[in-house]
Design a protein around this nucleic acid. Structure first.
Lengths: 200, 200
DNA sequence: GTCTATAGTTGGATAGAC
DNA sequence: GTCTATCCAACTATAGAC
């Protein structure tokens, strides 16, 4: 398809408005105008505002970060754990900085307490795959005695938590100017973390 | 005044609804019902919904965590940094777990992107005082050579970031059942952090 | 200060023509 | 699939009696 069809246009516009005004703050009227159709035409694609929201949720649920971040060439670098962790963190920041992902994280933070149609929407769920990947990585590093024999689950949280907070703190500004600030803060964190876990 | 506490009742009810449904999701109607008066009576105390929101913001802006968490008896314990950090973290969790604080953090996370009446509402602002306190503490620890000569600003973030993420992750559940889980996770973090910065 | 009554607006959603 | 037209529920806010 040359252009995204109307159904996907609606999804994109809805995500944009939800991410800026929240679910109840965004209206079908605004969304339809952004798409370029009338409100009533929306209902040919989704039966309700709620259904649009749920469609957004499942579209992000299907995504998996593994392949994107943990490419084969990166895995080859595990022998050089310092550099590996830095590259991994950088890719994570890049991933979280993609426009769609930024918007989704904003929606996640905004709607995690509102329980729209009894749907669970939690940062725990959002981070679970990443944490699992990190657990495996650190578990492997402990086994091969590259790092101290610490609990991989704990290491996973210590590694990811500051990165995620850094990411969410820079989520307000709409421009991408300060992405380098994010990288710098992330890098300093990784350095601190690496020195804490390495075997001298 | 015949009913001197109505104004504060409104503030409390509003905070409660804002924290569960967001600013636009909460209505004056619901708030007034919770207070036990009609919608129109609200406007004898606040001229608009927005004014109620701003009143909540300034009521939390006035609060200062220093005195509450950094009591004199705790400061005396700096000689025993391991225990000091654990107590400090525990008090922080306790502070963040107070019903009003929990609600405010929820509102903060929900409304940080919506820019209600152009008001800045950011986690950076919310955490700034705490971070400043931590910087001072770690700066002192570096000076007295209790810990490694690391950047106090970095240490402040490494110490607080996982604690704050832990706090926000357990903010969804309304009950207080799993507060001990929060304490456990916080404790493990402090142990990891302490081992990373201490001079052996 | 609180009430009833109501203005005025915006929201989600449907019916039926094309 | 999109349009016009419309419904009606819910919202913020005001006016005026008590």
């Amino acid at each position: 398809m040359k252009h995204p069809d109307t159904k996907e246009k609606i999804l994109n516009a809805a995500l944009d408005f939800f991410s800026r005004h929240g679910y109840s703050g965004a209206s079908i009227r605004q969304i339809s105008r952004a798409v370029g159709i009338r409100e009533s035409a929306i209902y040919n694609h989704y039966k309700s505002k709620e259904e649009i929201f749920l469609a957004i949720l499942s579209s992000f649920k299907l995504k998996t970060i593994s392949k994107e971040i943990l490419s084969d060439d990166l895995l080859d670098e595990v022998i050089n754990p310092d550099k590996f962790l830095k590259t991994f963190a950088r890719r994570l920041i890049e991933h979280w900085n993609k426009p769609g992902e930024r918007k989704f994280i904003r929606v996640l933070l905004m709607e995690q307490f509102t329980h729209i149609s009894n749907k669970e929407l939690s940062t725990t769920d959002y981070l679970s795959e990443l944490r699992e990947i990190c657990r495996l990585i650190f578990s492997e590093m402990v086994k091969t005695k590259i790092i101290k024999p610490l609990d991989p689950g704990l290491l996973s949280e210590e590694f990811t938590a500051p990165l995620f907070l850094i990411r969410t703190e820079y989520l307000s500004s709409d421009d991408f100017v300060d992405i380098n600030t994010v990288y710098e803060r992330a890098n300093k964190h990784v350095e601190f973390f690496w020195k804490a876990i390495r075997i001298k």
